[in-house]
Amino acid sequence: MMFIQNMGGGFIILFIFSILYFIFWVYCLVDVIRSEFKDPNMKLIWVLILVFAQGIGPIIYLIIGNSGKKFSY
C-alpha cells in the first residue's frame, strides 16, 4: 500500500493516458475491421499497421485511412 502512495500523481496520469490510448486503438481496429475499402488488401494492411506500429498507427489511420474507404450513401 505504501508503494502505491509513493508513486505520486505521475503514475495516475500515465495510467489514465494508457487506458485512453488503448480505447482509441481498439476503436481504430474495430473501424478497420468493419469498414470496406476500395482495395481488399487495404484492410489487412491497416490491421498490420495498427498492430505493429502501435505508437503512431491509430493516428496515421485517422489521418489517411478514410481516403481508401468505400462510402455507400
Score class of each variant (00 low, 15 high):
Q54W: 12
I64D: 09
V32A: 07
L20P: 05
L29P: 04
V51W: 14
S67M: 11
I13C: 14
F52I: 08
A53I: 09
G65W: 07
F22I: 08
F24V: 12
I23V: 05
M7L: 14
L44A: 15
V26N: 03
G10M: 12
I4G: 08
I19G: 07
I33D: 00
L14R: 09
P58D: 03
G55I: 12
F24N: 05
S35T: 01
F24D: 06
D39M: 04
L29M: 15
V47F: 02
I60G: 02
F37D: 03
P58K: 01
G57A: 03
W46A: 05
I33T: 13
I23P: 06
Y21P: 00
L48Y: 06
I56S: 04
I23R: 07
L44W: 13
G57L: 00
F24Q: 06
I33F: 02
F52V: 02
L50V: 00
L29D: 08
P40E: 11
Y61S: 04
G10E: 11
I60M: 08
G9R: 09
V32H: 01
Q54L: 15
F37C: 00
I63M: 04
R34G: 00
I23D: 01
D39C: 06
F37E: 00
F52W: 15
V30D: 06
M42H: 04
I59Y: 11
F24I: 13
K38S: 14
Q5F: 10
Q5Y: 13
I13V: 14
S67R: 15
I16G: 03
M42Q: 13
F11S: 04
Q54P: 01
D39Y: 11
Y21N: 03
A53W: 10
I13M: 13
L14V: 08
L20H: 07
L62D: 11
I13W: 07
V51G: 07
P40C: 09
I63P: 03
R34N: 12
Y27M: 08
N66E: 15
I63T: 05
G10W: 09
L44S: 15
L20A: 14
I33K: 03
I4Y: 09
S18F: 10
G10F: 10
I59D: 03
C28A: 06
I23G: 04
I13R: 14
M7R: 15
P58L: 05
Y27R: 13
D39S: 11
G57P: 04
S35R: 03
I60V: 11
I13H: 13
M7F: 14
I19P: 03
L62W: 14
C28E: 00
G57V: 00
W25N: 00
I45R: 15
F22P: 05
G68L: 06
L14H: 09
P58E: 03
I4S: 07
F15L: 13
Y21H: 09
E36R: 07
F17I: 09
G55Y: 02
I45T: 15
Q54T: 12
D39Q: 10
I63S: 08
I13P: 05
V32M: 04
S67V: 10
L20C: 14
W25S: 00
Q54E: 06
D39I: 10
V51T: 12
D31Q: 10
F22H: 02
W46Y: 14
P40L: 09
Y27G: 06
W25D: 06
F15K: 02
L48F: 04
M42Y: 05
N41M: 13
Q5R: 11
L62S: 07
G10Y: 12
K43S: 06
N6I: 07
M42L: 13
N66G: 15
V32D: 01
N6G: 12
